[in-house]
Structures are given as structure tokens and as C-alpha cells.
Design a protein around this nucleic acid. Sequence first.
DNA 1: AAGGTTGGCAACCGCTGTAGG
DNA 2: CCCTACAGCGGTTGCCAACCT
Length: 297
Amino acid sequence: MGRSPCCAKEGLNRGAWTATEDKILTDYIKINGEGKWRNLPKRAGLKRCGKSCRLRWLNYLRPDIKRGNISHDEEELIIRLHKLLGNRWSLIAGRLPGRTDNEIKNYWNTNIGKKLQDHHQQQISSPKKPMPTDFQPIRTKASKCTKAIITTPEPQRCSQQYCPDTEQVTVAVEPDHDHHYVIKGLDSFPGFNLGDDHNHNSSDYFLKDFEMDENFLSEFLYGVDFSELAANNFDTIGNRGDNNSTRSSSTTTNNTSCCERGYSYLDSDHHQDDKLQDSDFSFMDSIMGSEFGWFCD
DNA sequence: AAGGTTGGCAACCGCTGTAGG
DNA sequence: CCCTACAGCGGTTGCCAACCT
């Protein structure tokens, strides 16, 4: 039916796995461990291709697979991660213990994606609640942030020399000796020199866009326990009594788009510590937004 | 009751990145 | 540097049960 065989070899089983095949595969992996998928079928005595064995193990037979429906918390987490990561199902699954990329992908396609589509249709016919205007994840094939575009609500504050046509300023972002990403050269932008001006709050400035190369995002997210964050209430990401995590608390209240509501780097309280700390992901709630109230209704 | 339709999910395909020779 | 094998990933397909007419 249109689908060509996974492995061109004749005599290999295809389609649904039998209980016997499952047992053979499970027993083999228990003894020999995962990996070497190509040789596994022959060694285990299975008439399957290696790819098929790997998939069956990872998506179904693995002992740590969580069964049952996706919970509300998990769903919210999936939405937020998808907003951040796009269709990087394996990355999303990595933050949901016991869930597989395939499961999340299927869930998205059959539930969440449809809800979003329905909501979009509803918005077109009778707009009620605000929906993110740029409902697109940020670029995900990225690994090192090299440039950031910052917007200010007060364009006139920005020197023409640096932003001749718009309210935007592009600055360089470089890793320091501790591998923290630092926005460079802000002091040279008169409009952003906040050293003697403490009247600004963190909602005044926004990172609008990022220019990144590979791995930046992965490094960025490394070590964040999203399941824990989910369990402790999404709205408090980065603000759970952590004195160093106050940057974004005031950035989530306006109605600007999610990108424009990105991490406010120029918080006057922290201008002397312009670093993205490894453990400080307080900007996440700004990036991912609190605009999903409409979804939960 | 029978046939058609839909939705959910498991499995497959093809592409890509990476390591090793 | 090139080639090959392998593993992993995301998109797509097919099966089947539930639902509808």
C-alpha cells in the first residue's frame, strides 16, 4: 500500500509486534543492553530490522515508559516546550520523564494541534481572547547566541547613530570565560546606558530576536528540570523564592507578542550583572508566555 | 445490523549528523 | 578529506477500534 519496505531484505517481519517478539527483544536487551541495533535482530533471533527493534524498545518496551493519559500539567508543559522548541519532539520528550517523542508527537497532532487550529478558526470568526500573533517557535537549530536585537518602547531614547530607522538595536552576545553568554557593548549605546538611571523597570526593554548557531539552545536548556517546574506551577518559573531570579517577573503583563515579550535583559536592578546564569531561566516565562489561558478554557 | 467515517496510535521511511576507517 | 555504517529524529502512513449514519 504505497509504503516500501523498511529493510529491503526479504523474510523480515513487518507491522505489529507479537508478544513473543516483545519478550525476545526485552530479554535480549536486559542481558546485553541497548545499542548495536543493526546486529541485534540476528543475535536475538528476531526477524526484524534493527531500526524496527530500536523503535519498539524505545517507544514501547522500555521499562521506564509511563503509561496512561497525558495529564493537564504535562499538556501545558508540552505546549510551552513546543512554543519554545518547535517540532523537536525528542527534546520535548526529554523533559517529560516516561514519555516518548512518538507519543508526544502523536498527542500533539491529534489533540493540541487540533485545539490550536480550532481556536484559530474561532478567532477568525469571532475574536474574543488575545492569541499570540506570532505563534511560531523561535529557531531551534541553534547553539550559540551571537547577536541579540533589543527593542525599547522609547525609540527616541535611542541614538540615531545606532538605530537609524527603528527602535531596535543589535548587540553582540559572546560567551565569557565561564561560558556564560554576555551581551557586549551595551555601555556604548547611549539609549541603553542605565548606569545612572534607575527609573526603568524590566518591562521597558525586550530581546526581540536572537541570532544563534548550533547547540546554543540545547546548552541553554541543559539541566533544567521542566517536570519539576511543572509540578511547582508554571507561572513561577524562575521566580520561586530565588533572589537572583527576579528579572522577568514584571515582563509578563502586557499584551505584546511573545517575542517582543522576551527576556528583558536590561533590568536596572541587574545591569551590573549582565550574564545569563546557567541556572537562571527566569526569562523562560517571558519567552514562553502566559498567553495560554485561552487554551485551557 | 451493516457499511462508512473518524481518531488514536504504532510503526515505517527517509533524511541528517556523527564517528571511525 | 572522503566514504561508510550507524543511530537518531521528524514526518508520514496504515491499522484498528470506536463512532456515526
